[in-house]
């Protein structure tokens, strides 16, 4: 069904209460500050990036590692691989627990891809983050607490969608990742021209989703061209 949420499947949740310092260093953590790790794999990478950021808003955790896997979840290297491994690091195991709880809640109820053509042949991720946590804020070069539209779609759809989004509202592109990415999607991060303009981000995301649905030919009344 058009714009039906495709809820991500969390494939594995594991903890390392006291990880080896060598491992911590190799995965980007700081052995002086970090002791415990929380690991998550999921079949939707972009939803997981958003959920990892959500975790940093709820617990004293850092996202030390988050990488998408090549060719996406449909071509995963194993049953538990999916298309992303995200790693939270904290000074103690309870912070990891709190962070994981927020992360899983976000994956179940907030961040997800949507069906763009009614057959799940094309999917779109038109996500609006009301308030950035310190992980994505640092990645985007924005202040913590700023709103951001996190927009992902397949290459052609993403290109037309991004053009529509940028014209639909007073937004500016923070980052544009042209295809191909590891998962062969294309991605853009937008924020309001005026700081804190959440409505502009929402309008941009809506225009992006509408454009992707239109291109995918799934929208009511929208024919393929």
């Amino acid at each position: 069904m058009i714009l039906e949420p495709i809820v991500p499947t969390v494939l594995a949740v594991r903890r390392l209460p006291a990880a080896s310092p060598a491992l911590l260093a190799a995965y980007g953590a700081d052995p002086a500050r970090h002791v415990s790790l929380g690991l998550v794999t999921c079949d939707q990478d972009d939803a997981t990036y958003v959920a990892l950021d959500e975790a940093t808003k709820h617990a004293p955790v850092d996202v030390v590692f988050a990488r998408s896997f090549y060719a996406g979840a449909a071509h995963a290297s194993g049953r538990l691989s999916g298309e992303i491994l995200g790693v939270l690091a904290a000074a103690e195991p309870q912070a990891i627990e709190d962070g994981l709880e927020a992360l899983l809640r976000c994956l179940a109820h907030d961040a997800c891809f949507y069906d763009a053509d009614g057959k799940r042949g094309v999917t779109v991720f038109p996500h609006v983050i009301g308030s950035l946590g310190h992980y994505l804020a640092a990645e985007a070069g924005l202040a913590v607490g700023e709103p951001m539209a996190y927009l992902v779609a397949p290459p052609l759809e993403a290109t037309i969608g991004l053009d529509a989004a940028l014209k639909a509202a007073a937004v500016r592109a923070v980052r544009i990742v042209a295809p191909p990415t590891e998962t062969n999607f294309a991605c853009a991060w937008l924020t309001g021209e005026a700081p804190g303009d959440l409505a502009a981000c929402e309008a941009a995301a809506e225009a992006y989703a509408a454009a992707v649905v239109e291109v995918a030919g799934g929208g009511a009344g929208a024919g393929g061209r």
């Binding site: 069904m1 714009l3 109820h109 907030d110 609006v128 995301a205 989703a209 929208g219 009511a220």
Partner: peptide, 18 residues
């Protein structure tokens, strides 16, 4: 319900998917 889900539900209704 999440902000983005509400947004997409509204868009869906506007696109005529019932």
């Amino acid at each position: 319900m999440s902000r983005t889900r509400a947004l997409m539900t509204a868009l869906r209704a506007r696109l005529g998917a019932a």
